[in-house]
Simulated scan of single mutants.
Amino acid sequence: MTSPLLLAANPHRTASEPTSSSRLRRFGKAVRAPLILVALATAGLLVSGQLSKSEAQAAKAGDCMHALDTGPKADMEIVSCTKPEAQYRVVKAVRDDSQYRPCEAEGPEVFGSYTEKRTSTVVILCLALNTDRPGGPVPLPNWPQG
């Protein structure tokens, strides 16, 4: 409610008009900073989700891969097919695990597969030896079947 003294100071204003620091403006100011923080946090999570994507998940048919360690659970990285560390060539990349043994129908050059499971994604890479590698292909890995 507006005091009679305020109305007397401004005769053109009625009692039903809001004051300059209305409740809506105060509410808007109080909510603005948290909304900006939520928007920035959401954008950060989206960006970090993209940055955490592994190279195996980004691989496609024709890419060459380098195993960063030995064994079937080694992390893989994409490299140029003409580099000496380019051990394997991706023949097929499957983005889900609904297909049963998706690499078996890919031909005799495919010697095995690499599977990487993340929280909500699965990628299966059907691998062949990289014949474009300087010095020829590496020997077949001795990975356990499974």
Rank of each mutant, 00 (worst) to 15 (best):
L7H: 04
L7W: 05
A8E: 15
N10C: 07
H12Q: 14
E17Q: 15
P18Q: 10
P18K: 10
R25P: 00
R26M: 10
G28P: 00
K29Q: 14
A33H: 05
L35A: 14
L35P: 01
I36H: 00
L37I: 11
L37R: 08
L45A: 12
L45W: 08
L45S: 08
Q50Y: 12
L51V: 07
S52P: 00
K53M: 12
K53Y: 03
K53C: 01
S54I: 02
E55F: 01
A56Q: 00
A56I: 03
Q57K: 11
Q57H: 15
A58C: 09
A61T: 12
M65I: 13
L68A: 06
L68V: 04
D69K: 07
G71V: 07
P72I: 06
I78Y: 00
I78R: 06
V79A: 04
S80T: 06
S80K: 07
C81H: 03
P84K: 08
E85V: 06
Q87C: 00
Y88W: 14
Y88H: 05
K92R: 15
K92Q: 15
A93D: 01
V94K: 04
D97K: 07
Q99S: 03
Y100F: 15
E104P: 00
A105I: 11
G107M: 13
P108Q: 11
E109T: 12
V110Q: 04
Y114H: 09
T115Y: 08
E116F: 06
E116I: 04
R118T: 14
T119N: 09
T121K: 13
V123I: 15
I124N: 02
I124A: 02
L127Y: 02
A128G: 00
L129G: 03
N130W: 05
T131L: 10
D132N: 09
L140Y: 09
L140D: 08
P144T: 10
P144C: 02
Q145W: 04
Q145C: 05
Q145A: 15
